[in-house]
Every structure is written in C-alpha cells, then in structure tokens.
Amino acid sequence: MSVIKPALQQPELIAYFSGANNYCWLYFRNGEKKLLAKPISYLESQLPDFIRVHKTILINPAYIKSLDEPPHKKMAGKVHLDSGEVFPVSRRRWLQVVESLQNRSAGGSRVEKVNSSPEPYELPLTAQAYDSAGTSLFLITNDKEKAAQAELLIRDKWPTYPIHIGQNSAPLIELLKQLPEHEYPLLILLDARTQTAERLNTLQRLKEDSELSRIPVVLLVLPTEQLVINGYQRQANSVVSMPIGSPLFGHTIERICQFWLHIVSLPGSGRATK
C-alpha cells in the first residue's frame, strides 16, 4: 500500500497500468514502474477518469496522443501514447473509449485523432474474444498463476503483441477458422503438462489443416522422452519439457518469445531473419 496510496493521490504522474489477474504494473510518466498486488479492476474503480482500453490496460487519458480506428470489425483499434507506445483498443470497448476521448476533447484536452465507427463490433461466436490482427499470441494453460506471470511478462517486454489466454484448447480451432489468414496469431503456446490428450489433439488438428498449419506452435510437456516424441510426431514447431511448478517458467516463456518474435522470420510479419 505504500506505493498504491501515494500514486492514487497523484494520478497526473501515472501513464498507465498493465494488469494480469491480481497484479498490475504501474508505469509512471517519468519511465519508472512498480509492481502492485492489486487487480486492474480495483485501480479502475479508484481512478474513474482513467480509460480502460483493453481488459489488461488502463490509461491516463492525458497521456493519449491519438486513436486509430479498427480497419474492420474483427480487428482492434489502436491507442498511441505521448511516449510512442501503442496498445490495442478492444472491439468491445472501442465506442466507450472514443466517447470518453471526444468528451475530453470538447473540454479542451488534446487528442490529435479520434476515428469512430457508427456501428458496434460483433464478437466472435466463441468462448474468447479476439482483438488483434496478425500480431497476437495465444497461451493455453490451466495454470492460472503461470498464465498471469506470462501475461505480465509479455505486456512488459512486448506491449504491442496482445496475448490471449485460455484454459481449454478445444474452441481454438473454430476461433481461428473464423478469421482471415492475415489475422492469424504469430504464435500459439500449448501447455500440455496437465491436459495432455486435449492439447495433443488440438496440435494435431492444427497441423492437419492446410491453412492453420503455418501458425507456429510451441508445446510444453512434462520432462519425459515419450511426451517429447509425441509432440514432434504431431508436428509441433518446438517442444519444451518442464515440470509443473518450475520456477523457470517465466524465463522459459521469455526465451521462447525472444526467439519466435525477434529472431526467426514468420509468415506475414514482414521481418527478415536476423
């Protein structure tokens, strides 16, 4: 509370919050950051003037430079901060964000560009909403603590890559089949350490599909040789063995993302191999 209370008393010093489950990163406008043991919903209730642009991002509107309209209804919009950082604006929140910024503009606050759409955006007919095109990551895991850790890590180090987290891989195929090819995620992480049969079945279905098979899939399994073999037999792009509760989970996810997002060339990413 020694960090939270002073921060809430001086919201003008805050740029934004990046949250995952019961934790949040607090980013100050001077570049400093602090980890808070509070969910983003709590901070949103304490700072009603701040704008929730995404389920994991709460922004000080005074720090917003411009807002880009989604290219079409299945894609997210974008919010640009004065610092140059860019975050997705989820389709469910788009109209609310636009209205909030337009009200601030009418009151004399500066926002360079706000493009709104007169029609609401439809959600995919799936268990999860999909908010970004061609830059997102999917993590399927039953370990909520590790999921939160991975989400905080990726929000911190790769804020322009939205991460979508689920516990069940079964709806994943149908979700991806609804999307045009340019909206496929850059990477799928399947944690098969507990739900092994389901994850292996999803992996096999992904790799047997002529369109979805190009999406890189990293499979996490328990450290047994047979599970590693099973993963490669089903054409996983990489298989990583790790015991449940491993303290190296966050470090491993960071190294995986560093490789797949910054070293290799991915279809549609426009990057050459470094």
Rank of each mutant, 00 (worst) to 15 (best):
I4H: 10
P6Y: 02
L8D: 06
Q9H: 12
L13W: 07
I14A: 02
I14G: 01
Y16G: 00
F17N: 09
A20C: 04
N22A: 10
W25F: 15
K33W: 08
L36N: 07
A37M: 08
K38L: 14
I40Q: 06
L43N: 01
P48Y: 11
L58N: 02
N60G: 01
P61A: 06
Y63P: 00
I64A: 05
I64N: 08
L67S: 05
P70W: 04
H72T: 12
K74S: 09
G77I: 01
K78I: 06
V79M: 08
H80M: 10
L81F: 12
S83G: 10
P88D: 07
V89A: 11
R92D: 13
E99L: 13
Q102P: 00
S105P: 00
G108R: 02
R110H: 08
K113W: 03
K113V: 01
N115R: 12
S116P: 00
P118N: 03
P124E: 01
T126Q: 11
Q128F: 15
Y130Q: 01
Y130F: 04
F138I: 15
F138Q: 07
A147P: 00
A147K: 01
L152E: 02
L153D: 11
P159V: 03
Y161L: 13
I163G: 07
H164F: 05
N168Q: 13
N168W: 07
A170I: 12
L175I: 07
I188F: 01
T194H: 09
Q195A: 15
E198W: 00
R199G: 06
N201P: 01
Q204T: 07
E211L: 14
L212R: 04
P216Q: 09
V218W: 04
V218Q: 10
V221C: 09
L222P: 03
T224G: 02
Q226I: 10
L227T: 05
G231V: 04
Y232W: 05
Y232F: 08
Q233V: 12
R234L: 06
Q235V: 05
N237A: 14
V240S: 06
V240A: 05
M242I: 09
P243Q: 05
I244H: 09
L248Y: 15
Q258T: 13
F259L: 11
G268E: 02
S269Q: 10
G270V: 04
G270I: 00
R271A: 07
T273S: 10
K274A: 11
